[in-house]
Simulated assay, not measured.
Amino acid sequence: MAQAATARCRNRVNCDLALRAELIEIPQDGRCPECRQPLQTEANSSGSATDEARRKRIRLIVLSGGAVSLCLAGLLVWGLQGTDAPAPEVTGMDIASMEASNIKQLEPPAGESPPPLPPVALEPVSTAPSLETQQDIKQGMVFVSLAKQNPKTRSENIQNALVEFDNAIKKEEAQGRCFAIAYMNRGVAYWQDKKLNLAEKDLLKASECDPKSPIVFYNLASYYAAINKTDLALEPLDKALDLGFKDCDVLRKDSDLKNLRKQKDFRRVLEKHSLFCLG
């Protein structure tokens, strides 16, 4: 037997049936018996099993949709807060790997030279000889003086002088210095010992070690004049005068310059430097 259609009146303004939400069996004219408003058919609370299943399915869909929405909302919030999330703990090996990576990033690209380092300031090195070297020079000069005073021991004292000057040269060379005075005195000692090739070599070396020493160039000029190579003596003499050697008395009387004083160019070189020593 078919169940009669029922409905609830929707007129809650002036209908008691609507206010009580009573189910009304729909009359033939389809109107509320109280307020005469049209009624809309609906099943009663004891609807069919199909209707009940449909209602459950709808509720399930609604609940599922809400859960999915919550999940999506959670993912969105997590994504927005990702930059503020605490960093994971890093182990010692991980730190080493990170440091190695940073080092590689700091290396210059292939084919490019690294930027030059700033220049390093070096401490100035004194060119003055050590006290021990100065003592060797003094002792060598003592032997040279003794050689001049006593012809009998001349050769022995010259050899002793050469040893002292040689020691002075070696000590300064060990410190990376070229000691001009030691080379000059050893050259003069070789000259007195008639070892002219060695004398010339040392005198030239002295002029290289100290190209601003007037006494070094004067001794080189004296050596060339003494062995009668006056053409070679003029240039070092001119250099000595240019550096400040102005002793007219020596230029007039030095026996080593005897051959050079006979040359016209000797006077010319002196006059060039405003020295009129020959009268």
Rank of each mutant, 00 (worst) to 15 (best):
A233V: 14
L39Q: 00
L241F: 03
V90G: 02
K258N: 06
Q105P: 01
W191N: 10
L203Y: 00
R57F: 12
A199Y: 04
V62E: 01
L80R: 11
S207C: 15
K205S: 07
G279A: 04
A180N: 06
G111V: 10
D249W: 00
H273S: 02
I169L: 07
A221V: 13
L198S: 04
L198P: 03
D166I: 12
M93K: 15
G74K: 11
I24Y: 00
Q40N: 11
A43D: 04
G66C: 03
K148P: 15
R268Y: 08
G279Q: 05
D247Y: 08
A199K: 07
I58P: 00
V216W: 00
I61A: 04
N197F: 13
Q28V: 13
V188C: 10
H273I: 11
C32N: 01
N160P: 14
I24D: 01
F143Q: 07
R186M: 12
Q149R: 14
D202T: 10
V13K: 11
A43W: 12
K212W: 10
L270Q: 10
L243Y: 02
Q37W: 09
R154I: 09
D202R: 12
K239M: 05
K212A: 12
K171H: 07
Q105M: 03
R267F: 06
Q159A: 11
L39D: 01
N102L: 15
E112H: 14
F165M: 05
R59W: 00
P86V: 10
D84T: 12
T41L: 08
P214H: 04
D249R: 13
L243M: 03
N44M: 09
E123F: 12
N219L: 13
K170C: 03
A206R: 00
D166N: 15
G47F: 07
L260R: 06
Q159V: 15
S97A: 14
A128V: 07
L241M: 05
H273K: 08
A168E: 00
K264D: 07
R55M: 09
L19F: 02
P119Q: 09
D29L: 05
E200N: 12
C9E: 01
K212T: 13
P236A: 05
D238P: 09
D94R: 06
I24L: 06
S64Y: 11
L241R: 00
E99G: 07
E132D: 07
A4F: 10
K262I: 10
L232K: 14
Y224F: 11
Y223C: 03
N160T: 11
S113Y: 13
A233C: 15
K170P: 05
S97M: 14
G92W: 14
E173G: 01
Y223L: 12
M1W: 02
P211D: 14
K258Y: 04
C277Q: 04
L275K: 08
D193H: 13
L241H: 03
E164D: 08
F165D: 01
N150P: 08
P86Y: 07
P236I: 09
G30L: 05
R59Q: 06
Q81G: 09
L232Q: 14
L243G: 00
Y190S: 08
P88W: 13
S97D: 09
C9F: 08
E22S: 06
K212Y: 11
A225D: 02
N160F: 13
I61G: 03
D249F: 01
D254E: 10
G65A: 05
Q134T: 02
L220A: 09
H273W: 08
